[in-house]
């Protein structure tokens, strides 16, 4: 398994798990404890539906490492790029299934997804740093 794929996989898994927790937490404020079940559904559907996104996340990780920027700037670019991808994916999903982002459910999913992608990217921060250092070192050699 290539390094960029393993980092991409970690971001993807963590994002979906976090999204499940955050969405159920937001919905539980308005809809009560039963909303935790929605979180489980979000996690299961997330793994099934967003799997093709790995084909975008992996090259994005690779691109972020190769950017001639500091590690902080590269990570910020990756986080915002992945958030944009998540947002576009959810918008497309919403259009296909007729879910409005102005509804409580739609907006919770979107807020949850964006926040979870950001947190997931930050959580692999050290791996990204090491990968960047290794890539730069190999380029120097």
């Amino acid at each position: 398994m290539s390094r960029q794929f393993s980092i991409a996989l970690a971001i993807w898994i963590k994002s979906i798990m976090l999204n499940g927790f955050i969405t159920s937490f937001i919905l539980s404020i308005t809809d009560g404890p039963a909303a935790f079940l929605v979180g489980i559904v979000v996690i299961i559907l997330g793994f099934i539906l967003t799997a093709p996104l790995l084909t975008i996340i992996t090259p994005a990780v690779k691109a972020s490492i190769r950017l001639p920027y500091t590690t902080l700037a590269s990570k910020a670019w990756l986080a915002f790029f992945l958030m944009l991808i998540a947002f576009l994916f959810l918008m497309a999903f919403g259009i296909v299934f007729g879910i409005s982002i102005q509804e409580d459910f739609g907006s919770s999913i979107i807020i949850g997804s964006l926040l979870s992608v950001l947190l997931a990217t930050l959580s692999v921060s050290k791996s990204l740093d090491n990968y960047k250092i290794e890539t730069n070192a190999s380029n120097l050699v």
Binding site: L67, Y69, T70, L72, A73, S74, A76, W77, F80, F81
Partner: peptide, 12 residues
């Protein structure tokens, strides 16, 4: 496209 890393670069 690179506005995000550009602004973060200045935070270095």
């Amino acid at each position: 496209v690179f506005s995000i890393p550009n602004i973060f670069e200045t935070l270095q």
